[in-house]
C-alpha cells in the first residue's frame, strides 16, 4: 500500500476512535463520576444517529417516497442534527431514569439493557418510522464542497476532534464544580451524601441525562460519518460492550483516560483484524467472533488485575492530601 493509502486508513481509524471517545466521555459522566451502570449505550447511539439523520435529510419525494419511509425529514444544517440528537437522548434518559434511579444500582442496568433492545426492535419493525431494517442513507456531511470526496475524511476528523474537545472541556468544568463534587460523593457513599441534604435522585438524573446527551452527539457524528445507518449497526457488541471495555481500560473517573481507552481499544480491535487475516480460510468467517472473544477476555483481565485502568482516577483535591 502506498503512503497516501495508509494515511487515509489511519484517518478513518482516528475518526471512529474519536466517535467512540465521545461515547466513553458520556459513559464516564454516568459511571466514572456517579456510579450509574448504563448497559444500554447502544440505544442512545441508535436514537442519536437516527434523530440527526432525520433532522438533516429532506423528506423523501417523488419516486424515492415509495421506497424510503421516514416519519419526518427537516433538511436542517448538521449542527441542528447534533443538538436534536442530544435533546432526544436526554428525554429518553429522563424516561428511563424515573422508574429506576430510586432503586438499587442494577435496576438501571437491566432497564437500560431493555430499552436498548426495544429501541432496536422498534426501528427494525416499524417501516414508517425510519425505513425499517434497510435504514436511512445519504446524511449530509458539513463542508463537503470544500475538498474532493476522497479527501473529505480529513475535514471530518477535524470536526470529530473539535466536538470531542468541546465535550471534554464541558465535562471537566462540570466535574470540577460543586455539582461534580456532589456526583462523586454520591458514587462513594450515597447515605452520607443524602444526609448532607443532597437530593440523590435529582443529581443522579442530571448525570444520566447529561451523559446520554453526550452519547446522542456521538451517535449523530457516527451517522454523518458513515452516511448509512440501519438497526443492525446498534448491537450490544458494537454499541455497548466495546465502549465499556474502552472506559475500563482507560480508567473510569478520568476523562483523559476515557479518550485514551477509546483509541487504545479501537487500535487493538482494528489490529486484531490483521492477525485474523492469517487464519486458515475455514476460520475466516468466524474471525469477528474470535476478535470479540479477545475483547471480552481483556475486560475480565482489567477487572481482575487493573480495575483502575491505564490512567486511574485523577485527583480532584490538593495534591498534598492523600
Amino acid at each position: 500500500m502506498e503512503f497516501s493509502g495508509i494515511l487515509s486508513y489511519v484517518v478513518s481509524l482516528a475518526i471512529m476512535a474519536g466517535i467512540y471517545a465521545i461515547f466513553c466521555l458520556g459513559l464516564n459522566i454516568q459511571w466514572g463520576y456517579t456510579g450509574l451502570f448504563n448497559i444500554g449505550i447502544a440505544g442512545f447511539f441508535c436514537i442519536g444517529a437516527y434523530t440527526s439523520a432525520m433532522i438533516t435529510t429532506p423528506m423523501p419525494s417523488g419516486i424515492y417516497a415509495q421506497y424510503v419511509h421516514q416519519i419526518f425529514g427537516l433538511n436542517l444544517p448538521f449542527i441542528f442534527g447534533l443538538l436534536g440528537a442530544a435533546i432526544v437522548c436526554g428525554i429518553i434518559a429522563l424516561l428511563i431514569g424515573i422508574p429506576t434511579l430510586r432503586l438499587g444500582e442494577d435496576y438501571l442496568a437491566i432497564a437500560t439493557l431493555g430499552i436498548a433492545e426495544t429501541i432496536r426492535l422498534i426501528f427494525n419493525n416499524e417501516q414508517w418510522l425510519a425505513n425499517g431494517p434497510r435504514g436511512l442513507m445519504d446524511m449530509p456531511q458539513p463542508f463537503h464542497n470544500l475538498v474532493s470526496p476522497q479527501n473529505y475524511n480529513y475535514i471530518y476528523l477535524v470536526i470529530t476532534i473539535i466536538a470531542m474537545i468541546i465535550i471534554y472541556m464541558a465535562i471537566e468544568k462540570a466535574i470540577r464544580s460543586p455539582w461534580g463534587r456532589v456526583l462523586r460523593a454520591i458514587r462513594e457513599d450515597e447515605g452520607s451524601a443524602s444526609m448532607s441534604g443532597k437530593d440523590i435522585f435529582n443529581f443522579k438524573m442530571q448525570s444520566l441525562i447529561f451523559g446520554s446527551m453526550v452519547m446522542g452527539i456521538g451517535g449523530a457524528l457516527y451517522a454523518h460519518y458513515t452516511k448509512a445507518i440501519s438497526p443492525s449497526v446498534f448491537t450490544p457488541l458494537y454499541g455497548t460492550f466495546i465502549i465499556w471495555v474502552m472506559l475500563m481500560a482507560g480508567g473510569s473517573g478520568n476523562n483523559k483516560g476515557a479518550i485514551l481507552g477509546a483509541y487504545v481499544i479501537w487500535g487493538i480491535w482494528v489490529g486484531t483484524k490483521f492477525v485474523t487475516d492469517f487464519l486458515p480460510y475455514t476460520l475466516q468467517s468466524r474471525a469477528p467472533y474470535i476478535r470479540f472473544l479477545i475483547i471480552g477476555i481483556l475486560l475480565e483481565i482489567i477487572l481482575l488485575y487493573r480495575p483502575q485502568g491505564l490512567m486511574g482516577e485523577e485527583k480532584r483535591i490538593s495534591k498534598l492530601i492523600d
Binding site: 456510579g35 451502570f37 448497559i39 444500582e105 442494577d106 442496568a109 457488541l237 460492550f241 465499556w244 475500563m248 470479540f292 472473544l293 475483547i295 471480552g296 477476555i297 475486560l299 475480565e300 477487572l303 480495575p307
Partner: peptide, 13 residues
Amino acid sequence: VILAMSSLGASFI
C-alpha cells in the same frame, strides 16, 4: 456492580 460487569463480560465470552 463490578461483579455484574464481569458477568456481562463472561456472557460475551
